[in-house]
Design a binder for these strands. Structure first.
Lengths: 287, 287
DNA sequence: GCAAACTCTGCTGTTGGATGAGAGTTTGAT
DNA sequence: ATCAAACTCTCATCCAACAGCAGAGTTTGC
């Protein structure tokens, strides 16, 4: 009934429509003291807003977009200090830079995972032996704390924990977005002693920035064998070694087991992996 | 008391520590069926996990980082379909690109706001007349729907709504991060008729990509007067016109009122603005 | 054998709203 | 003036993804 006091003012619904917010939001802001309606009908409790209050609402939404909480905003509004706002903005700009870096890292991690899936899908049949040129690789390694060839998969998982710790220390994305590898020293391998030396992840050039425990696997020809079962590793590795000897290849470095984990999530009993065992080799040049 | 069944398994606390999650999180995942403990003691209800379950937990956390909800993840896990996961990852990569763009836009918006505050802080005293070179500016405009010189500030706010609509249509950041302006056509202005022609925001080059309602304000010399009160605009504009005439400047385009809004948030009764009125001028070249 | 550390269930709290019930109010068309 | 439609009020509940607590029971290590 009152048409005197709210002349030129907007009902909550109109205010909401004009500013593209919901009525609930306006009520919340009122309750929190962020944006009090210009006039409230004391009898009906109806809220009426002044169109000029849009600027304050703008401010609130802008600060929200910048990631400030409503109570932070309330604080800013109460203090009426532009310098403080400027500080928040500058801080926000730094945050944005940080977020951009994180986003980039995430992007790379996702790419790696996609590649890994593709590769898994297209890897050759189990038992296939091949001779491949493999480009230089950068790895982040940890020494093996237990012999998982003897102690089984649980020991392997424990060993990986150490690697995980290193990833966390370096603020790197978690293990799932990398492929894993283990090595046996050349000497042990040639004498057919399967003693794990290192466990590692394969990264890219940028890994070099992360200081310790980084190693480069040189580019070159590798004798490889593919298999899909952790349990057959030693058998296949020996087969590969025999193959190298029969063909007169010279072993040129540590034995490597590369693990494309795919997603070992559907069966908790066993890692569902695909392995590519690798022996770096060189050849007698024909002179 | 039971030490048979949980041999080699981890209590919830150890599992939490190893994976750097909280106990509460593990309990939640159990409840939701995302990660059921390997063994539960039926008498005590104690949960025991297998170290191999870390891989599943890894997956959950990886997907969480990618922004999937727990129920989405549950879905993925139940379907056991790697293709689906790959799709999600590709989708996520697109999202990341989008986010990067948004972040960049936000960064620019924040920068603009900071600049605006700085400028406000350092603007000269009210009433100051100056002659300035102003560089080319890009504006996004809307025609004025009402004469706010006659109808007052409420009409002005209504006019701005139209501009706001355009910003939203173009997915541009909200009004607060731009400075506003209004114009009067050269002819009207010279004949001292204050009829608003356009209302607009000042943007940057990129604005050109946004199609319609974009206009360029040419670079050149402008006669300017600063003031801090909306109500004095016409008075000051006339003064500025008089000044131009007395000095023999030739008016070379539309009259512009640039509004540095600062933050008009602390006093809801009135926009707390700082205005720079501008008349583009040219001079008789001395020959 | 005993204390310390751990774990259980069930509850509440968090943020920034969304949604809904049930009652009352305003608006616009007749 | 009337009546329905549209609007608004308060109060309550719900969301996601946990965090934290209380009070009771359990395991561990010395």
């Amino acid at each position: 009934m009152k048409t005197e006091k709210n002349r030129g003012l907007l009902s909550i619904g109109k205010m909401a429509k004009v500013n593209r917010v919901t009525i609930a939001t306006l009520r919340l802001y009122d309750e929190m003291g962020l944006l009090r309606p210009s006039y409230i009908d004391t009898e009906t409790g109806y809220r009426y807003y002044d169109i000029r209050q849009t600027s304050r609402l703008d401010f609130i939404r802008y600060m929200r977009e910048l990631g400030l909480s409503l109570s932070d905003i309330q604080d800013l509004l109460q203090r009426e200090d532009v310098t403080l706002i400027e500080e928040k903005l500058i801080e926000k700009n730094n945050q944005i830079h940080q977020q951009m870096r994180e986003l980039k890292a995430m992007h790379e991690a996702v790419d790696r995972t996609i590649q890994s899936i593709e590769r898994f899908r297209k890897s050759p049949e189990s038992g296939t032996i091949s001779l491949e040129f493999i480009d230089r690789r950068y790895i982040l390694f940890a020494p093996c704390v237990s012999n998982f060839y003897e102690m089984g998969i649980v020991a392997y998982e424990e060993t990986i924990q150490e690697l995980r710790t290193q990833l966390i220390e370096r603020n790197l994305p978690q293990i799932l977005s990398y492929s894993l590898g283990t090595s046996v020293t050349q000497q042990d391998f040639e004498e057919e002693r399967f003693i794990p030396d290192q466990v590692f992840i394969f990264g890219d050039r940028q890994l070099q920035e992360y200081g310790n425990n980084i190693r480069i696997l040189d580019s070159g020809m590798y004798a490889c064998i593919y298999l899909d079962n952790f349990d057959d590793e030693i058998k296949c590795a020996k087969e590969l070694l025999k193959y190298c000897r029969e063909n007169g290849y010279t072993i040129a470095g540590d034995y490597i087991c590369e693990e494309l984990t795919e997603f070992n999530i559907f069966d908790t009993r066993q890692r569902n992996m695909f392995l590519r065992l690798q022996i770096p080799v060189t050849f007698q040049k024909k002179t």
